[in-house]
């Protein structure tokens, strides 16, 4: 019996170290069992223990999240997608941003690696919900020929790649917001 315990103990120490090296996923407090009556009741009745109750100190981020998801604060589009779009296109100079219409238009941008090309992006956040078809990005490309910028086709996969980046960032923002 003692040998078994020793083996179990060794595994219990070694495997978390392995987890630390391989980069595991943080287990949320809601994934552990609880003897706390309040939390048990909230879990069983479909309420969220991390957002129930009254905030007496600090910012009630759960309320902010609710408002953001519903496009609160006067916005008519999803706040996570909107913020993610701005974050994603922040490397380009911004020409205009309309939070009510959900439109972001950048100015021309020349990547240092390709000085004879320049890009301009237009992004549309399409609704209040955080969903994968909630954003559209259109990239425009020009190339320098004989000292003149002329229109050129851009790769259609780049548009979807940028949309993926926006969605990933929105998911990240949502996740960070939820874990606070």
């Amino acid at each position: 019996m003692r040998n078994l315990v020793r083996t179990f103990l060794t595994l219990s120490v070694a495997l978390p170290l392995l987890a630390a090296c391989s980069g595991g996923r943080l287990v949320g407090n809601e994934e552990y069992g609880t003897d706390n009556q309040r939390e048990r009741i909230l879990r069983q009745t479909g309420a969220n223990p991390t957002t129930a109750g009254v905030v007496v100190f600090g910012v009630d981020r759960s309320r902010q999240q609710d408002q953001a998801a519903a496009g609160g604060g006067g916005m008519t589009v999803n706040a996570f997608l909107w913020r993610a779009t701005l974050d994603t296109l922040a490397f380009m100079p911004l020409a205009s941003a309309d939070p009510f219409g959900g439109v972001v238009i950048t100015d021309w941008y020349t990547p240092p690696q390709a000085p004879s090309e320049r890009f301009k992006a237009t992004a549309y956040v399409l609704g209040r919900q955080l969903r994968s078809d909630g954003v559209r990005v259109q990239l425009f490309r020009q190339v320098l020929r004989n000292g003149q910028w002329v229109d050129a086709p851009s790769s259609s996969t780049t548009n979807s790649e940028l949309e993926d980046r926006v969605l990933a960032r929105a998911r990240e923002l949502r996740s960070q917001s939820a874990s606070r």
Binding site: Y109, P112, Q113, T158, L162
Partner: peptide, 8 residues
């Protein structure tokens, strides 16, 4: 195109 868009 690929070079430029990859950079973006």
């Amino acid at each position: 195109i690929l070079l430029g868009t990859t950079a973006v």
